[in-house]
């Protein structure tokens, strides 16, 4: 086991043993270990790497450390700078999980139900990757490649996640079968960029990888009255919701049916839009 103190330490340890597992908060990893599904010989522990912790602002961007915990995402300025991320973080697990679980862990797990992923997708986030040899950046859409699959190479780790600071409201909504501490049945993030005059929508748990509802975005972008902050025509709200529902590619599983997921994601889309543009005709 390597307890890394710096990112270089961690990358060096990974270079030596590319099969080593990275351990951050352990809230995903240990579930697999305890179930006997994850076996390993070497571990590189990340939670004492100061460089991975916290976040900083670089111009119009926030650089969120991979070790940023959910508890940290709901505190301080993040709820103002990236509201949807804070909202998503608050829906995750229990206080214990939010204290331990990290953004990097959520991104690296790349689960369709990962709650930060629709937000990062809507924000067109960039993932900063690092190895002992190299650094590279990937947009979130190219990072997550399938159900719990991603573009991480052996020897590589996630150093940070970059998201833009946008001017405009943001919404994250998540449906679960319980009122707290529940895995998403379907989730949706909607972010508004007033200066770019667009609306972006990320969908969770309705396809193997997080989706952008591009058609819905394109449609609604043209219907917004940016001066009043509203969508004047109800038919456009309906159309937006229908296009979002149509973008979903859900499956039936023990958490919900495909039919319910398509339906629910449309409901979430309508509600998110009306919250972001409160003057709209309902």
């Amino acid at each position: 086991m390597t307890i890394a103190r710096t990112v270089d330490d961690a990358c060096a340890a990974l270079a030596e043993r590319p099969d080593a597992l990275l351990l951050a908060g352990g809230t995903d990893l240990m579930v697999g270990v305890n179930r006997g599904q994850v076996r390993f010989d070497d571990v590189v522990v990340l939670d004492r790497v100061d460089e991975l912790r916290g976040w900083r602002r670089e111009g119009d961007e926030l650089v969120l450390g991979a070790g940023l915990t959910y508890a940290e995402m709901v505190r301080g300025e993040i709820p103002t700078l990236v509201p949807a991320l804070a909202q998503a973080a608050r829906t995750v697990g229990s206080p214990q999980i939010r204290n331990a679980g990290t953004l990097g862990g959520n991104v690296a797990t790349s689960s369709p139900a990962g709650d930060t992923l629709p937000v990062l997708t809507a924000l067109d986030a960039t993932i900063d990757l690092r190895s002992s040899q190299d650094t590279r950046q990937l947009p979130i859409s190219r990072f997550v490649t399938g159900v719990k699959q991603n573009a991480l190479e052996p020897g590589e780790l996630i150093e940070a996640v970059r998201v833009p600071v946008l001017d405009g409201p943001q919404e994250f909504l998540k449906v679960g079968t319980r009122n707290a501490m529940v895995i998403s049945v379907v989730s949706l993030a909607l972010v508004v960029d007033r200066s770019g005059r667009n609306v972006r929508v990320g969908l969770g748990t309705v396809s193997p990888v997080p989706l952008r509802a591009v058609e819905a975005e394109a449609h609604v972008g043209g219907c917004i009255d940016w001066d009043t902050g509203s969508v004047p025509d109800t038919a456009d709200v309906d159309r937006f919701a229908a296009l979002v529902a149509g973008a979903a590619r859900p499956i039936d599983d023990h958490r919900g049916t495909a039919a319910y997921r398509s339906h629910a994601v449309g409901v979430l889309a309508r509600r998110a839009l009306l919250r972001a543009f409160p003057g709209s005709a309902p």
Binding site: T91, F172, L173
Partner: peptide, 16 residues
């Protein structure tokens, strides 16, 4: 808002 249906998931507004 936490005590509305959907709870922490922020799904529901009072009018729903």
């Amino acid at each position: 808002p936490m005590s509305l249906p959907g709870g922490a998931g922020r799904t529901t507004d009072p009018e729903h």
